[in-house]
Design a protein around this nucleic acid. Structure first.
Lengths: 367, 367
DNA sequence: CTGTTAGCGCGTTCAC
DNA sequence: GTGAACGCGCTAACAG
């Protein structure tokens, strides 16, 4: 040891080569397991690499091979378990295929999304799965321009040529609305998210269709939309409660909207479901575990993530030259207490049924 | 246009240079906003870049500058809101400082963690925040060897020289246990996670201390540990229920253990808190919103994430040459129904108190 | 203020 | 089987 190097440098392929008494080329062949190398040389190189704690420089490697080994996933809300469950599905498949996942939380913000799109391109991610925020077609177009294989998840964008994995939002909303109608509700408030997102529009479409089919009047005062944030939904429901519109049920366009609605109802002293029934799209697994209260239209989030990654891999590897696929997965109605259909005691039984089990086990450790 | 290029290539700095009629160096200076450039040249370059849809190649840039602009975050369980809330804190601070975050979900698996450590090193991440899985000191040592600035979060590792941001697990466990003792419980089952993680050991220490101080006998049959997974906790609690050990309360070492415990109690027909009281470490925000049921020792996860990232930035920028800091944040007891201290009606009041509000607002959109 | 030169660490020719 | 030379795209020196 000469002296403590002030400028610390990570070992490179040359350091390994010197130590093993071979050329850098040979080290490269051994490390990336590509090309010939005698057993003895191979062993010497591997030992030298081990001793030096050598880890290939992904930047240099990617620069040369044009394959970064990275895949990006852009989601709008990382604290929402619907998206984190998707993350797990994506990650499981990606890792099985030797890819690492960069997760970008766009926060429902088109500007943040734009920044992440630059990261995707700049990092030379080999592909990207996006649940688009707002009207982000401009951001998506950039991905297209840069030939980044793209799969849309949860939120399709009209006219954008990419594989899509989404839930049946129209059908699910119809079924959920029909459920409320069957329970006798005629004045149902619809608490929607951002109308710039396709899911918001689709779920509202389903809601309206169901009401029309039932010849139930649609009161525009009962329709509200805004952002997908809890606080916003809470404020809107509070506003409705304080005005003189009456309603006996709330259809929340997603799980977070439902939480906002419940908060507002609680703050104004209303009881659920006695005073107001509440249902929503998307499951909240942990909450259902603690108390199966909320009646939801649960989507197979884990499966959606897996499917999206599989489609992406096909595109990345050029297998699929076919036109974009649109995979639509059916949601499942989980009837619990908040809609007023079940009493607490009935619910106890419900909790033990495999409905709940399946919904959560989907997350399971097994593939 | 000559012909459709079969080999599509992204525009490089040279393409921009040619189009703007300047040298590549000048383009570099304009793009990275570093060095002189006349206004007219600057404008020409910016326009050319815009027209070409040029995005700098992060790989090449990082290779040259040795600064990838990336920071990694390794967490053990991405569906647990405790960790996703940490993610938000880390991300908010990192983005403010122009860094992007790579999230790795280690799944409580030392092997997966090892793979991600290689990604951290290989991607030349400028720093890393880790909530270590199991006894992962070997993995951490690799980070040390490679001079990657590291901050430990939630789970310190004895003897590892790095900044730590953690909760006061011993103190929190004592307080939570005392709460149960004050309610008259003497036979409390302790459902722990993986004893290889520091939090498990610290929380058990607090639990034992509190019992000793109260001169309450510790029955080893009431102590259980295993993995941090819901299913495992469920199985262990079921096992206890089916054996002939009696207990009137369960202290779950984290929120997931509590969910497992609740599942087991429900499956065996026990009522909470009437038959068995349940408390745990860590909040489940969304569940508390829907129904403030679970009595928890809530940790300031968002603040923990922010703090960890701030400490990491200090290290990365070489500001802090001081010895490693150990930041310990106090948790807060949120008394709700599952411990039996409150009736449902009292709880309604509770729900409106700012305890809950603060715990969730911490997540708020405001910085 | 701008251009020329060199090299970051790796994989890929092409020789031997 | 193995090594020497070259270049991926970018920026840090150094000139001018």
């Amino acid at each position: 040891v000469k002296s403590l190097p002030q400028e610390f440098a990570l070992p490179t392929i040359h350091d390994v080569a010197r130590r093993a008494g071979v050329s850098a080329t040979t080290v490269s062949r051994v490390i990336s397991n590509n090309g010939y190398a005698s057993a003895s040389v191979r062993a010497r190189v591997e030992q030298a690499a081990e001793e030096l704690g050598y880890v290939p420089n992904g930047l240099a490697r990617g620069l040369k091979t044009r394959r970064s080994g990275l895949v990006s996933l852009l989601i709008p809300e990382i604290v929402n378990s619907f998206y984190t469950t998707i993350v797990r599905g994506v990650e499981d498949v990606a890792n099985q295929h030797g890819r690492q996942v960069i997760i970008g939380n766009t926060d429902e913000n088109v500007e943040k999304e734009k920044a992440y799109v630059d990261v995707v391109i700049g990092s030379r991610s080999e592909g990207v799965i996006v649940a688009p925020a707002g009207r982000s077609s401009r951001n998506l177009k950039r991905l297209l321009d840069h030939q980044v294989p793209t799969v849309l998840i949860d939120r399709p964008v009209a006219g954008f040529p990419a594989d899509v994995v989404q839930g049946d939002n129209v059908g699910g909303a119809i079924e959920l609305t029909n459920h409320l109608l069957a329970l006798g509700h005629r004045r149902i408030a619809f608490v929607n998210g951002d109308l710039d997102t396709s899911t918001a529009r689709q779920r509202e479409t389903g809601f309206r269709k169901a009401l029309e089919a039932a010849e139930c009047e649609i009161d525009d005062q009962l329709m509200s939309s805004g952002t997908w944030f809890i606080d916003d939904a809470e404020a809107r429901v509070l506003h409705m409660l304080n005005s003189n519109v009456s309603f006996t049920a709330i259809f929340a366009a997603n799980n977070f909207m439902a939480i906002g609605a419940l908060r507002a109802l609680r703050r104004s002293g209303r009881k659920v479901p006695d005073d107001v029934a509440v249902v929503c799209f998307d499951e909240i697994e942990v909450a259902a575990e603690i108390d199966p209260f909320l009646t939801v239209m649960a989507q197979p989030a884990y499966r959606m993530g897996k499917l999206a990654m599989q489609l992406l891999l096909d595109r990345m590897e050029g297998k699929a030259q076919s036109p974009p696929q649109d995979v639509i997965l059916p949601p499942r109605l989980l009837v619990r207490r908040s809609c007023g259909a079940l009493s607490e005691s009935e619910d106890r039984l419900m909790a033990r049924s495999d409905d709940v089990g399946k919904a959560t086990n989907e997350l399971g450790r097994s593939m």
